[in-house]
Every structure is written in C-alpha cells, then in structure tokens.
Amino acid sequence: MASQSDTQSIEGAYAEPVLRAAGDSALLIAFGDRLDPAINNAAIAFDARLRAADITGVSETAPTIRSVLVRFDPLEIAPERLRGAVAELLAERDWLAAPPPARRSLWRIPACYGGEHGPDLDEIADLVGCSPAQAAERHAEARQRVFMLGFAPGVAYLGLLPEAWNIPRLKEIRPEMPAGSLLVAVRQTVLFAAAMPTGWRAIACTPFRSFDPRREPPVPIAPGDEIGFVPVDATEFAHLRERAENGESIVDQEELA
C-alpha cells in the first residue's frame, strides 16, 4: 500500500473518496475532480472491485473520468446497507495508488488529418503553435489513454495531450460533425461514435467505429486502454471505411503488459 503522502500529492485528488447518493437508486463515489491518470486508475480499479464483490441488489456499475456510478434497487438493498458495503471496500486499500487495469490494450487506429476530415487542423496548429503537418504528427504520435466512455454510446474521452494542447472550446456549438470525428480541446481528444453537434475543434476523422451494435461487445475499447493514431490519406480513408462497413477490423490491438 502506498503511503498517504504519495497520493495526497496528486493534484485534484480528494484526501478521502467522496460517497454521494445520486437519487434514491444510485451512488457516486468520486476520487477527485481533475482529469488525471491516477484518479482515473482509482475509478477503474474500484469499479472492478465492486463488480467482483457482486453485491446483491446492485444492477450495474460504471467508471467515469474520476468516479464510479453504482446503480441499485433500493428495495433489494437498503441504501444505508449499500453505503456501508461500499465504505468497507473503499477502506481495503489506497485506491489512488492503484495501477492501470491488468488486461488493457494499445489500439492503433487509422485517422485522416486535415482537409474535409479535419476542417479545424490549421486553426488548431495556430493555437498549439506549430505547423498543421506538425500538429497532425504530434497528435497521432501521442499515446492517449481512454479516460471514459460517455456522452453517447462508444464516445471515448482520450488524453492527456501535452500542455501546448490546452486549447479552449469553441464559443458556439457547431452543427453535426460526422461519426469518427476526432475533436480536441483542453488537452483531450473526443472520438465520436455517431454524428453529433459539438463545441470542440475537429482535427481528423477515423473510419473506425467505436460503437457497432453488430459487434459483441458493441464497444471494444475500454477505460484504461491506450490509443495511438496512424495517419492515412483521404483515398486510404475511403478504402478503410468501406472495409469497416463490411464488418472487417481495420485497427490493430496489442495487449499492454
């Protein structure tokens, strides 16, 4: 177990996990209020612990960037009893010292930068302070972690990009960006699984679909996984998209030790 001083130095981490009722049928256990790998590891690890504990009356758990959601039937397990069981599990260890999940993957995902697939690349490069080609290269090479699946089915929150990428969101929500869009802001990338409006800037688009109801599970990537992008040109993009639509895999998946 790591010493308290180690984990208290994590910026944005709470000294103690905060347990709150979210309505009468859910609990939220938060480990901090920042986007931080250690806080995210705590959430992922505690989610796994809760699933292993298999508490009667709990219908599902889900990790987020910095917390764990526990949904339950309050007539099957009284909220007070569930809070007690959760507190016992929280006391088992220093969750902020938890390592990344044991079985996780590195995904290499094709992406076409700039042009119609990444209409904001030039503007992003200006904000980052480099050329568009450099911005595309640096974004693709950065190994980003999956912090959370949320917002909509299969939408992945990735990060953290280097400090130079701490660029603001747009002032206006823009109309629908297509499925596969890679959007950047505040050192993060969001991978869109379906066409949606957004307040973030589009740097690229991938022919890979992070949500596909034909697949089991419908969302293959998981929190804690890492992602690198492989730049492809528009011709290759069109070709890969066709293959993906036919149900072929167009990404590389490698187990991370």
Binding site: A22, D33, A62, T64, I65
Partner: peptide
C-alpha cells in the same frame, strides 16, 4: 471544474 461525471 468541468470534468464530466455520471448522471442518472
């Protein structure tokens, strides 16, 4: 802080 959390 603007960090998203689960909603119910």
């Amino acid at each position: 802080t603007g960090v998203s959390d689960a909603v119910v």
